[in-house]
Computed example of a mutant assay.
Amino acid sequence: MIDATPTSAPTAFELHRGRGPFNAAFFRVMGPYLQRTLRPRKQRVFADLPARVVEIGPGVGANLPYLPPGGTLVALEPNRHMHSPLRSAAHRHGVRLELHESMAERSGLPDHSVDAVISSLVLCSVDEPAEVLAEIRRILRPGATFRFVEHVEAGHGTFTRAAQRALRRPWAWVFEGCSCERDLEQSIRAAGFETVDIERYRVHSPFLPFNTHIAGIARA
């Protein structure tokens, strides 16, 4: 079942007539490749999700296969170009969709109302990761989990780090603010969660700035 009506008004997200459709198409086309690349970590950190899950920036629905059939995805997705493929994907997977156009920094959800928040390849592009993480902690019930699979800055002095630095401006422009140079592991560890379990790993893709990653679970 799908509730196809957005439940909150758009906020400060800037819809770009070129980049928005491009990113929606890019992630539809690259979805199978990204799934093969990231599946082992997603299977670990997204295992046994509850029936109702909040996802920040679900895009075209890459993480819907990890939700239980018949479950509910509360989607915080301000890019309207993602909405149509996200609705279609929710329908295919038998997941009820509650679609919000709100930004991750201001979800509009009640305090301590959520059992799980998930994200993948999103914290790189939000304006203020610390604000997003504070919002996630605010809406999570005590003991609930934030589960994440994100790409991060490479080690200093490495070739990958040099490539991230050299390509940071065109990369950010094409991928709507995505930064290759964020130390998201430190951001998550500093966000005030009770426990944080993080695995660092590397993928091997043609997109060199994208190849350094973390996956883990933080408990409120």
Rank of each mutant, 00 (worst) to 15 (best):
G57W: 03
F46Y: 15
E77V: 11
G18M: 12
F193V: 13
G143F: 03
P129L: 09
L121H: 03
V53P: 03
N211L: 02
G155E: 10
D197Q: 13
R36A: 15
F27R: 00
E194G: 09
L123D: 07
P206K: 05
L140F: 09
P68Y: 04
L86N: 06
E105G: 03
S107N: 04
I217R: 12
H204E: 10
Y201R: 01
L97Y: 00
M103T: 10
V196R: 06
A190S: 15
A24L: 06
L208K: 14
I118K: 01
N23A: 11
G177Y: 01
R44Y: 05
L76H: 02
G157K: 02
Q186H: 11
A215G: 14
L73S: 06
D111F: 00
F13D: 11
K42F: 12
V29F: 09
V45K: 09
A75W: 08
V196D: 03
E185Y: 07
R44L: 14
E55A: 10
A104D: 01
Y33Q: 07
T212V: 15
H213T: 06
R200P: 03
V60G: 06
N23H: 01
V53F: 11
H156M: 08
S88Q: 15
G177R: 01
S84P: 13
T7D: 11
V174G: 04
E176I: 14
Q186S: 14
D183R: 08
E131V: 13
H81F: 15
P85D: 04
E153N: 05
A4W: 04
I2V: 15
F175P: 00
G57N: 06
H83M: 08
E194P: 05
Y33W: 14
H83S: 04
S113Q: 02
A130K: 08
V95Q: 00
L133D: 13
H213D: 11
S187M: 11
Q35A: 14
F27I: 06
L121M: 15
P78H: 06
E105T: 04
F193Y: 13
E150I: 07
E185W: 09
S187V: 11
P10I: 04
S113M: 05
E181F: 01
P69K: 08
L133A: 13
R165A: 08
D197C: 08
R52L: 08
V45P: 12
A220H: 15
F148K: 03
A47T: 08
A12R: 09
T212G: 03
R44A: 14
I56D: 03
G216R: 09
V126E: 02
C178P: 08
V95K: 07
D127A: 10
A75L: 11
F22I: 06
R200D: 13
V53R: 05
S187T: 12
A191I: 11
E153A: 15
R39E: 15
G157V: 07
G57S: 10
E77S: 06
Y33F: 14
H91W: 08
H91S: 14
R202Q: 11
D183A: 13
R147K: 11
A215V: 10
L76G: 00
A62M: 10
Q35F: 05
M1Y: 02
H204W: 11
R106A: 12
G192K: 07
G61W: 03
G59S: 08
H91T: 15
F146I: 05
L109I: 01
A12N: 10
S113G: 07
A12E: 14
Q164I: 05
A163C: 12
A163G: 01
R147L: 12
I56R: 00
L167A: 13
R219D: 09
V203C: 01
